[in-house]
Simulated assay, not measured.
Amino acid sequence: MTASRSAPGLTWLNSSAESDARTALHEVCAARSWIGTVLARRPYAGTAALLAASDDATGALDADGLAEAMAGHPPIGRPEPGDATSAREQRGMAGAPEELKAEMLELNLAYQEKFGHVFLICATGLTAGQMRDAARSRLANSPEAEREIVRTELMKINRIRLSGLAEREPERA
């Protein structure tokens, strides 16, 4: 048996009640259609199959689904208080100089003004400067090009979060 097949969180996801699995998947991605697609393909033989289902579901998101998914993400540099996942993913901003944080806030606002949603980037492992540079660069994109970049970034985020879900020990009641 491979490690992914014995992943405790994956075993839980495969066997949990739909409402419990739905709640857990909502922590990964807020798009209802994504959650529905991932739920419908249970049970998963391994983490790779779960990630493939996620990629398919993310690729199939329409404009409303993408908007719903993005609404579940706080702006870069401003994770929701008490949201350990966003704080961990955005830790590259935590120690940034105040000037860079202020510039990121301005870039977030300009981005939201232009595209109508938060600047979404898979921030895991990126420095504050890399996130700032990406925001600067992506402001020049067309809405169509940016939508596909957002889809790719969302896919990366979903994969990281799902991998964590699959590997962690389920909480005992």
Rank of each mutant, 00 (worst) to 15 (best):
Q90P: 10
G95T: 05
D133T: 07
L165H: 00
R172Y: 03
S19E: 12
Y111T: 03
A123S: 14
G125M: 03
D64I: 11
M155G: 15
W12R: 00
T124F: 05
R42M: 06
R168T: 13
S4K: 10
P74M: 03
Q112V: 08
L154H: 04
E167W: 12
L66C: 03
M1I: 11
I121F: 03
L61T: 09
I121C: 02
Y111A: 00
R32V: 11
E103P: 07
L10S: 10
H117M: 10
S163C: 13
A94C: 07
G59L: 15
M155W: 12
A134P: 04
S16F: 02
S4T: 14
F115L: 10
Q130V: 02
E169I: 10
A84N: 09
K101C: 02
N108I: 07
R91V: 11
K114A: 02
V38R: 01
A24K: 01
A30S: 09
G9F: 02
G77E: 02
N14R: 07
L51E: 04
N141D: 11
Q90R: 04
A69W: 01
L25S: 00
A49Q: 08
D56Y: 09
C29L: 03
V118G: 03
L39E: 09
L51H: 05
R5Y: 08
P75T: 05
K114T: 00
T11V: 10
N14V: 08
D20L: 07
A102L: 13
L154A: 08
E106K: 14
G36A: 11
L66N: 01
G59M: 15
S163W: 08
A110Q: 15
A52C: 05
L100N: 05
H26F: 13
W34A: 04
L120Y: 00
P8Y: 12
E146L: 13
F119R: 00
A67I: 02
R147D: 07
T127G: 13
D133G: 08
E99L: 11
L109A: 14
E169F: 05
E103V: 07
E103S: 13
E171A: 15
M131S: 00
R78M: 09
A40S: 15
A53C: 07
G77I: 06
T58K: 11
R91P: 06
G9W: 00
A31N: 05
S16M: 03
G164M: 04
L66I: 12
A84L: 12
A57T: 01
R41Y: 00
L105H: 10
S142I: 04
L61Y: 12
P79Y: 00
T37P: 00
R42T: 07
R41F: 00
V118T: 10
F119T: 01
I76Y: 02
A173W: 13
A87I: 06
V28F: 02
E144M: 10
E68A: 12
E98I: 04
T2P: 04
S19T: 09
G9S: 06
H26S: 13
E148A: 15
E113V: 05
A21M: 01
L61A: 14
M93D: 08
T37L: 06
A135R: 02
A60D: 06
K156S: 14
